[in-house]
Nucleic acid binder design. Structure first.
Lengths: 213, 213, 213, 213
DNA sequence: AATGAATGAGTGTTCATTCAT
DNA sequence: GATGAATGAACACTCATTCAT
């Protein structure tokens, strides 16, 4: 009965799935090469070789080099946001401090894997010659989304009496900056340090201040 | 007596001075072009045109493009350190908090002018293919110097009883990260905010913490 | 009796017919794309898209791009010759001048539709690297056929006393050249001029000369 | 006194001269390669190799491939016009028919050397995708200039009573078309025919008509 | 010391052609 | 027979670097 319809829709679905997987494979390869060689040195040929296809194939999936990089940024950004949301969902019942800890750990962990990418792509966005306007915005928007979630979390903190409300608007930025720095330093460090050992002093200082009480 | 020697040394000194001025002029031009066009787009020809000389001349003063960029980084880094030291010298008699404030303001002000440069050059250093090893170190060394001064300052803070000693080793990094973030955000902001308005909440949160006492 | 043979030959004939129609459809599409995009810009993908099939299909009907273009040229050339022959047949009883007029009108009309194609394909034939020798000849052969018919017509003209016989060998070329120019000029003109208005001065000058009698 | 000014202006003049000669050399090489390989097959590398320089050098003299081709067209067009004007000047006192003969011979001779170029570049101009508008116009403008001179000549012919005035407006086009065809046919012919042998029947037919008087 | 034309390796991108499904 | 993703050779163009003047 519906044998015909399925005989058409299934292959299409299959095509879609394979196309998506191919895109993902390319993005993975691109990230690897980018991390190894840097933004400029990462040649399309290198990326193609990494995936195990020929250059032309890359252009079947992405308009050009720039679009490939942008897609990579968007996809990885989306993944981070998804993980953050999942974490927030999971920690819903917990108190502010615990949730904040979980949130930052998420960023730290994800960034450990992908930070070099973010760093490179931020740099890419900072280049002036980007003809496509709003290019930079796309990158910032992601971090603004992260900030937004931190603000929400901060509101909970204020309600709980765990945060002073006066400087609340500055907290997201400060937390992100310190986390960002943490990641960068880990990236440059010889041997890694467990996430929680890094976060503990950060949170302590952030919440209780550097001055003795 | 030494008339001869001076008749030689003076012109030599003059030569030196002129050579130094030429180098400085090139570095200034390079920074401008870099800030405007980005790291990749800044061509040697552009820099030469900005100084008003021909490409060949650039190569009389710098081995190659890479060395020029490194010189630029080193010079600007040295300038920052010099200003920081001057500020520390000036504020010697003041209490910890005031000195810290002055110190960070120095960084913020200097970075406002040169941050884009630092950002670009950090990126440059992060590229893996740098044949010259220890390249990255040169860049980090500068910031380690800044950190070092912050540590010294921290020791004063601890002595004064203005800082809890437990996490003292983390403070420089945190302060630098937050300052770094401040600069970046200012760079992207439409209109600038007075330095002290930016620093006040930072210092308040850092010293007294985000939690109510 | 021959029921079997027909049971085989009919479907074969059907196949043939469909194959021919498919080829024709491809050639039509090719001509459109060629006229719109030019010889180089006309990509196999474009042609396929215009027919509504995929690239691979094109290669089921033509060896390669070059053969497709040649087929297009040959088919259109054949059509022109057929129309010319029909016109000559039709005008058999008429006097030379009328027949010549009809003949040239045929060329003009056909070229108005397909001239851009002929022009592009002539260019294609002029390229030196054509590995297949005698390539150019195929294109010229068609025009030689046209010339041949003009010569025959000229013989009639001479017999009628309408043409001086001395330069008869040059007339076909001259007529074709002027007609060719007429078409090209029409192609570039903003608005078209009725065919006969174009032909009248041509014929007048050709037959009676530019000098007063 | 003016030793300084000359010490500067002379080298500048020298530079200019050399620059012009280099451009001319490139254009010559380009024309050769174009004639041999065709419009598409003529690679920048080939042209460079023909001049004996490297690719980059070509781009010191011409924006890009397209501009090089356009320059070639403009220069050759200018040369033709200059020769035509010289011929008109020379033949000033002669009667119409002689001047026309000289004029066409000029075109024929020049085209014999450069016709293939003109043909290719006309084709190039006909391509639709030329982003630069008025591109085609530049090419046509040259031939319009030639036409213009033929019109002037025609006016002399009318005054002399050598031409009937009615179709005068069509004469330039017809003459050019026939000459154009003559050149093309010569190009394809195995062995060349002396120019005057080609022109004689053309002029006879044009002036006196194909019909017997 | 300054010049700037020449160099040429390097890279992104295109597109005719193939072939597994 | 039709499909369309994969292929990879080809080519225009860039730009750091050199060196004769």
């Amino acid at each position: 009965m519906n044998s015909r319809s399925t005989s058409r829709s299934k292959p299409q679905a299959l095509r879609m799935r394979m196309k998506e997987e191919a895109r993902a494979a390319i993005l993975d390869a691109a990230e690897q090469v980018l991390a190894e060689q840097g933004l400029q040195a990462a040649r399309m040929d290198d990326i193609a070789a990494r995936v195990g296809v020929s250059v032309g194939t890359l252009y079947n999936y992405f308009e050009d080099r720039q679009q490939l990089l942008e897609a990579l940024r968007d996809v990885r950004g989306g993944e981070l946001l998804a993980q953050l949301d999942a974490e927030l969902e999971r920690s819903q019942p917990s108190p502010y401090r615990a949730r904040l800890h979980g949130f930052l750990r998420c960023i730290l962990d994800y960034s450990r894997t992908h930070f070099r990418l973010f760093s490179l792509l931020l740099e890419n966005s900072l280049q002036r010659d980007t003809s496509r306007e709003g290019e930079l915005d796309r990158h910032l928007k992601m971090w603004r989304e992260v900030s937004l979630r931190l603000e929400h979390l901060g509101q909970q903190g204020v309600k709980e009496g765990a945060l002073r409300p006066e400087d609340a608007s500055h907290y997201p930025a400060m937390l992100l900056d310190m986390t960002h720095g943490l990641v960068l330093r880990q990236l440059l460090a010889k041997q890694p340090v467990p996430t929680d050992e890094l976060l503990a002093p950060l949170l302590r200082c952030f919440l209780e201040g550097a001055a003795p009480r």
